[in-house]
Amino acid sequence: MSDLVAAASGFLDHYNQYITIFLMVSGLYIVIARGNMVKKLVGLSLFQSSVYLLYISAGKVHGGTAPIIDPGFTVYSHPLPHVLILTAIVVGIATLALGLALVVRINEAYGSIEEDEIFERDRDDK
């Protein structure tokens, strides 16, 4: 019985990482399985957001508060992951815009944003 309780608490200790893994794997699945390029980019940003969650939850301290110093608090969460992720979010949107710009140009060149149709047209051209 106590083994079971220990196993359950060991499982619950890492629940943030199970959520991260679920989000990461769903992003990976969308990127591989979907032929539509806009959906691929949305899957990529899902993958990216799982990394945000991984970093932010690693910096969390139980009983801590946001790292803005105030005489009323003594325990703070780790500020460094916040810095890394806050810049990563803005960079992520800039790269998403770049990907979407490429999709727009691909659509102008091929008349499609589906991967299979683009490969087919490439084969026909050869």
Binding site: I89, I93, L100, I113
Partner: peptide, 30 residues
């Protein structure tokens, strides 16, 4: 998770600008 700075960025960038960009790209494609 104690990161108000990140939450502010994600709400402004991810939910705001990102959606506008995706819709803009959809308008130009399919």
């Amino acid at each position: 998770l104690d990161a108000p700075d990140v939450a502010l960025t994600e709400a402004a960038v991810g939910a705001g600008v990102g959606t506008v960009l995706i819709v803009g790209a959809l308008y130009l494609t399919k």
